[in-house]
Amino acid sequence: MTASFCAPLRLEQVSIALAGRELLVVDATISSGEVLTVMGPSGSGKSTLLAYIAGFLDREFTASGGVWLGERNLLSLPAEQRNIGLLFQDPLLFPHLSVGGNLRFGLPRHQKDKRQQVTQALEQVGLAGFESRDPATLSGGQQSRVALMRLLLSKPRTVLLDEPFSKLDTALRQEMRTLVFSQLREAGLPTLLVTHDHEDANAAGGPVIELG
């Protein structure tokens, strides 16, 4: 797969407050294939930042500032039209769908070769032939890989990672870091990672913002 180019993700003076108290202010631009890491202890508002960008901000928070993907103002769009891919601590594979079903869930509706894309995606992460498996029968690492491929197949223009490796055991964690960052870089996606683990930041290799 050749590296592709995406528009940069721009955060303009994004500020988040809870009950009048300001939690954070971020002003940054993440270019294609770059990973920006936001580090901070729990309660610092880093997950809230992701929620704001993705369009799921809880009502109790107030936020201001602009979020732009190239020339598109993301804040004016509903969550599903922002083309933002999300990865959480848990892989969150839909239990009512098979592995293949989970991957197809993310594919745009009128796309040709859906089956072929799913097969390829599974091959790419060493899970060839897993289409009809029940996600519950997969190991933690396998599930994470399926979740990653589901995200990539949905053709996001930018990706937000919310401590995606914190629940994996040490050996697996290293492996997944390598996989995720290389795939995202190859896809040329601007990526925002929030974590409290310095090793995540090191593996991401991009700029780091430390929160209070």
Binding site: A54, G55, F56, P78, A79, E80, Q81, R82, N83, I84, G85, L86, F88, D90, L92, F94, P95, H96, L97, F105, G106, P108, R150, L151, S154, P156
Partner: peptide, 24 residues
């Protein structure tokens, strides 16, 4: 997060209700 994932995969609110929430 189930619904967040679904919507980040490009599925609208009502579609997420039918395709994710109800089956779950």
């Amino acid at each position: 997060r189930w619904l967040k994932v679904a919507r980040s995969l490009g599925v609208s609110r009502s579609s997420a209700f039918w395709r994710v929430r109800l089956p779950l």
